[in-house]
């Protein structure tokens, strides 16, 4: 079932962020959400995750969905290691060995037993991406998942995302038009 945002409006402390915003996210497809800074991309993501409620309008097609997310900030448990962070959100059948294998696919092979506070920004970002992709879900939202990654790492993460997403619906906020092509995504531009 497609997810539809119909005439969504939202304001924060008197500042109107979204006005009559419409968008359709088709089932099983990857969508890239683009637009200038401050246009409301993160607000759309937060609305989809149910973290905030719209002032007006309706969101259809979300009921019963399990959502996984890569937040704008990594939102990792700082004193836990990378594997523990991923296992926190996974079902019981996901084992440590599986997580380590998945880490290796995006070049995360060293320091995985250290608290994530000791990892570099790029490593933390990849941990956050893997956490979202290994969690049980049927909708994945990602807010700038490639932030802090160099081109080579970005390509490997893009390929990994495409592989893991399979037929899941995904909404990815990005600033880079290249990401749309790399992900074979449909583009939704916010004005």
């Amino acid at each position: 079932m497609d997810i539809k945002l119909c005439k969504i409006s939202k304001q924060f402390e008197g500042k109107q962020v979204l006005t009559d915003f419409d968008a359709t996210f088709m089932e099983g497809q990857i969508h890239c959400l683009m637009g200038a800074s401050g246009i409301g991309k993160t607000t759309v993501i937060n609305l989809l995750m149910g973290l905030i409620k719209p002032d007006g309008g309706a969101i259809k097609g979300l009921r019963g969905r399990r959502i996984a997310a890569v937040f704008q900030e990594d939102r990792l448990i700082e004193h836990w290691d990378a594997v523990e962070n991923v296992l926190l959100v996974c079902d019981k059948h996901v084992k440590k060995e599986t997580v380590l294998q998945e880490f290796a696919k995006v070049g995360l092979t060293e320091n995985m037993d250290k608290a994530v506070m000791n990892l570099s920004g790029g490593m933390r970002r990849r941990v956050a991406v893997i956490r979202a992709l290994l969690a049980e879900s049927d909708l994945i939202v990602m807010d700038e998942p490639f932030k802090g990654l160099d081109q080579a790492l970005k390509i490997s993460v893009v390929n990994y995302i495409k592989l893991r997403l399979a037929d899941k619906t995904a909404i990815i906020v990005t600033h880079d038009k290249e990401d749309v092509q790399l992900l074979d995504a449909s583009l939704i531009t916010m004005f």
Binding site: L51, R66, I67, A69, F71, R75, I77, L88, V89
Partner: peptide, 11 residues
């Protein structure tokens, strides 16, 4: 923010 993360992931 961590609590929001936990809510989204149904921790």
């Amino acid at each position: 923010k961590l609590l929001q993360m936990a809510t989204v992931f149904h921790v």
